[in-house]
Simulated scan of single mutants.
Amino acid sequence: MAAARRPAEAPAARRPRNSAKTKASILAAGRVEFADRGFEGARVDAIAERAGANKRLLYHYFGNKEDLYRAVLLDAYQEIRRGERALSLDQYDPVQAMDRLVRFTFRHFLANPWFPRLLGTENIENARFLKTMPDIKALHSPLVGQIAAIIERGNTAGIFRRDVDPVQLYISVAALGFFYVSNTATLSVIFERDLSSVAMVQEREAHAVQMVLDYLRTKPGA
């Protein structure tokens, strides 16, 4: 008697593609590759492999290498702007608001060391990609306005000086964290201190806050 024929197995269902997750993985991999190797040294193959994505899919979502680099830059700026908006600075008094902004900026650089390296790469490129990204200006304008409002509220309360350029102030706030994080290794050797230790990082953060607040409280000509 012939053996009963086993029913044919149905073909395995193809797993639906999660485009948002794949794009996020590619952007995250691009951050690391561009930050570590610069634009010229970065390889699309390496980014696709790190992201666990097909290279053709990478090109499908982001176009060429230059477009992917622009997307990584834009995503990096959008991330820090989202963090700043989440601070809800208008809900705090001027001193607390500026304290929160300085600490957030410092901690963002500290938690994302790839970010200073990525910005260093774009500066080596003389910002040639950033100049072609119209979305960047719109991202920064609200932050400048927010800082200007904090300064105005502080001045009205008799706490802060009025003659403060919000752009110059933000550059100083960013520099206090950026330089420390991007130069921790060399500064640790030069000054024979482990600047990456928790104690030194906390000391530096407090120092940054104090510098900014002391400047804002200093009356012109004092």
Rank of each mutant, 00 (worst) to 15 (best):
M98L: 13
A12I: 10
E9F: 06
T105K: 10
A8P: 00
Y69C: 11
Y92K: 11
D90G: 14
R217W: 10
A199W: 00
G52H: 01
A4Y: 10
D67C: 09
K23A: 15
D165V: 04
I150S: 01
I147C: 05
R162Y: 08
L130V: 13
S19E: 13
E122Y: 08
D90Y: 15
I124L: 13
A174K: 12
R161N: 03
L87G: 03
T121C: 09
S19L: 13
L216E: 06
G177K: 05
A157G: 02
R43V: 04
A208N: 04
L195P: 08
P7H: 04
Q91M: 13
G41M: 04
M200Y: 07
G221F: 01
R162V: 10
L176P: 11
E79V: 01
V72Y: 02
A157K: 07
D135N: 11
V209L: 03
H140G: 14
L119D: 06
I190Y: 13
P94L: 05
H140P: 00
D194P: 07
E9R: 14
P134E: 09
A97N: 08
S172K: 10
V201S: 05
N123G: 13
M211I: 15
F115E: 00
S88T: 14
R217D: 02
V189S: 09
F160I: 00
L87F: 07
I171V: 14
S172Y: 11
R153L: 02
A127Y: 11
K65C: 05
E152H: 09
S197G: 09
S141W: 08
I124H: 12
S197F: 06
E122V: 07
M211S: 10
L119V: 13
